[in-house]
Design a binder for these strands. Structure first.
Lengths: 127, 127
DNA sequence: GTCGTTGCAAAGCGTTTGCAGCCTA
DNA sequence: TAGGCTGCAAACGCTTTGCAACGAC
């Protein structure tokens, strides 16, 4: 059984996600983690993220036509808001639910995804 | 101003979308269109699709972690169902609406996307 | 010392682009 | 005949992988 080692690189990556409070892409993670840990290859970040997802510590947040983002696991059921201006993704509380009534007959519903698009508060006020 | 020419290749591609009744990826389009038009490069399909999107004849259907799909324009507001078994995408009628109440204060909502995941009728009955 | 981890560079995958030749209007 | 269109191959951006060196336990 694989033992998971606690390296400086992975430490920095975990800290970045804990501090973020929103989903981060691999590229964002590289940028933020390099502030803490100068020597950090992109392949290392990708491997660390994948390992953390396997461990269940991170959860992938996939948006259409966007590179995958990740956020710490354990959050309540929620969805995401994509700011078209700064391209950041924010968590939003709640869920419109009742998707079963929209499922065509004969189809089996297992999960759903809701994504809102627009401008975040920062970008709205900046304009 | 660019004049759009009516080639065998583009004719075949248009026919494929008209017959599909569901969103098709570029790869699916290549496969289906080659049945009508043997000589057909993948770059040609990508260029034709992009041109048809510019013309407003096709609309992109983007799903998380999936290559872009496209469907003929002019359909009523609707969303999509992704079959995890056959990986096909189906249109679904209706919309749960009322996403404004889930939009955080200060944020500006411009659009929304709803995606249902599960198994289509064919795959449910095949199992 | 073991063996998981790192960084680099190369490979992968889906998509786009450069270019010479082709063919529609 | 002009210039949009095609096919090939090379380039692209993002992600994964091979490999030798490194370092946590």
């Amino acid at each position: 059984m694989a033992v998971i080692r606690n390296t400086k690189q992975r430490q920095a990556i975990r800290e970045v996600f804990e501090a973020a409070g929103r989903p981060l892409s691999a590229a964002e993670t590289v940028g933020l983690a390099r502030r803490k840990q100068k020597a950090l290859g992109t392949a290392t970040v990708y491997r660390a993220i994948n390992a953390l997802v396997e461990d269940g510590w991170l959860v992938p947040v996939e948006l259409p036509a966007e590179p995958a983002r990740y956020e710490v696991a354990g959050l309540r059921h929620h969805h995401h808001f994509y700011c078209r201006s700064c391209r950041k993704v924010y968590d939003i509380e709640g869920c419109p639910s009742d998707f079963i009534s929209f499922t065509p007959t004969g189809f089996e519903l297992e999960a759903h995804e809701v994504i809102l698009y627009g401008r975040c508060d920062k970008c709205t006020h900046a304009a």
